[in-house]
Design a protein around this nucleic acid. Structure first.
Lengths: 345, 345
DNA sequence: CTGTTAGCGCATTCAG
DNA sequence: CTGAATGCGCTAACAG
């Protein structure tokens, strides 16, 4: 209960025999104020540890210098990377970040938005949940004059700027890489049909096959729903036991790829000499697993920074109509799991 | 630029021909107000989507219902788990969380604290950086009447409640497990000498050795600084190439353990039949690596929830003097990497 | 160069 | 049961 009462502008004004507004302006080195006065006020403020009451400042200015950030899952390598970038960029620009997660549940996303609106964030960064089909809750922000920027998992239902990974190109490069390494029967463990990222990656996969003269074998395309190792393992089993097993797997995410690799290793298939595997996202675990898993780097940190920079610009310019879309280029990270030259090892 | 001007209490008061204070009280179903009036006001507010200006409310009440959370690193499985728990608990209690990271750099931690103070959080959750040696910046919060709760990486320099993992016991159990599995020459890859968690784990390691009648061989204790795979790999190499190589490794964290395993696999040592390995933290990668890495689960999510609950209690009770310490029990997760019975596989 | 004044939106005390 | 009045701390327009 040590609490000492806070020093206010009024206190320092009274103490120094100036008016409150003079004190206020002096602290901001307003050109109207005499050098001497400024010095005096600043000195006093410094000495007595004056700290402005930001609640009052924010109230007055109707701004909080805080932005909201909602992701589906916080405990997720990619998203935590994005958040990290967002926080670093925000800090640089003097903004704070309020973080929340939806757990891929629409109701949770709605609540989070409500709280964010309530706590008066100046703008919102959001990656929507799998369940989000329409964007009324997001439009509310825009209607209230607070810009939003969507990233990674987006919906076109909401008119706003977007920062996305070039999923199509990333997938294309991954499959191209597999083809160049000599694999000829490339399967794809894809994600949910309703999720844009999954569709884009699947299209990249198909386009690459097509461009290099391979047909699409639909049996080699499997729909993952939970996107975890078990699905990877099970689908790998299904395909490898079929009459026409593939010789490579391009997986929607690293976790699925790990499951595939586990099945392959458990059943004596050599990676990469017999079967190649490529994941997506380049999680830490792609690096430490053996053989090292080739994967597509999404530059999450950069995405977080760019999205935040964009949002803060919109806030500053009071711009609510932008629909600018930034595509983050992916990068193919080649490790052992896809290097067929290892055939004779 | 669609912005519609916000409805205020004044507007609805004028519209309904009542006073502002009546409107205000009606919305809160104050007992003084007539049922009928309450109904009227609420109906109007509802119909016109009245939303209180929280900036004004917060300013008036001098509260933000926001708490700050600072961790060394956001992209880190354990910390993101803690954050996840903190956010979920905070949400349940109507609080928001402002997240920041120090990158284990003192200067960044100071800045983060400054911003948090500035944005008037009601309280602070913090896990300090490796560089933090004294806690003046934390005491500032307490002096301003805002409670803080330290978690995981803590300093006794600051009088505050703490939520910590029982590192000693976790380490003890891990080493006990290795001993029970039949390993007799257990090395320890420890963390920095200045970090409490590292010391506690090292003590648990030593105590277990002692309790089971093993002496401490100082050559088998290595100081990791960066706490990454490379250090694990390099120290494993050093030890395994020495005159008296250990037959098991207890590592300060999973990443180091992965490095150790990599060295062992690369050089033909069988895990776990020849050499056992146990990590700490139970990251996702412990589960997916092969052989599966035995590890000590720290229950980060639970830690986040408990710390948050504690902090909110302190805020509500305006309690700044508590020094309560909660110890979170660890759990030994046994996977293949430490099961010597596999000797004859 | 400085002071006076007004007001942001709301909660609350004090009178009726 | 209701209204008038006050002030939270700060900013900014306006007046000297």
């Amino acid at each position: 209960m040590t609490e000492r009462k806070k020093l206010t502008l009024k206190d320092i004004a009274k103490e120094l025999g100036v008016s409150i507004s003079t004190a206020s302006r002096a602290l901001k080195s307003h050109p109207d104020i005499a050098e001497e006065t400024i010095r005096l006020v600043k000195e006093y403020a410094e000495k007595h540890h004056y700290v402005p009451n930001y609640l009052a400042v924010n109230f007055r200015k109707n701004k909080t210098f805080t932005i909201g950030l909602i992701v589906p899952e916080l405990v997720h390598h990619f998203f935590s990377t994005v958040i990290s970038g967002a926080i670093d960029e925000a800090k640089k620009q003097g903004y704070n970040i309020l973080v929340s997660q939806s757990n891929d549940i629409l109701a949770d996303e709605l609540t989070a938005c409500q709280t964010m609106l309530g706590s008066s964030v100046d703008g919102l960064l959001i990656s929507i949940s799998n369940e989000t089909m329409e964007g009324e809750h997001l439009n509310e922000f825009i209607n209230e004059g607070r810009p939003i920027v969507q990233f990674d998992k987006i919906t076109d239902q909401v008119k706003s700027p977007k920062v996305i990974v070039d999923d199509f190109e990333g997938a294309y490069q991954a499959v191209k890489h597999l083809i160049e390494m000599g694999y000829k029967k490339i399967a794809h463990m894809r994600g949910r049909l309703e999720v844009k990222n999954a569709n884009d990656r699947c299209e990249g996969y198909q386009k690459a096959l097509q461009d290099f003269g391979y047909g699409l074998n639909k049996e080699w395309v499997k729909n993952c729903v939970l996107i975890n190792e078990k699905e990877g393992y099970d689908f790998a089993k299904e395909l490898m036991e079929s009459d026409n097993p593939p010789d490579a797997f391009f997986c929607i995410t690293d976790l699925v790829a790990i499951g595939v690799m586990k099945y392959l290793k458990d059943h004596g298939f050599k990676i990469p000499s017999q079967v190649g595997v490529v994941g997506f996202s380049n999680w830490k675990l792609a690096e430490v697993v053996s053989p090292g898993l080739s994967s597509v780097e999404q530059h999450g940190y950069d995405m977080g920074k760019r999205a935040t920079r964009l949002l803060i610009d919109l806030i500053k310019n009071h711009n609510l109509d932008s629909e600018e879309t930034i595509q983050i280029k992916t990068k193919m990270i080649v490790r052992e799991s896809s290097q067929m030259k290892g055939k004779n090892l």
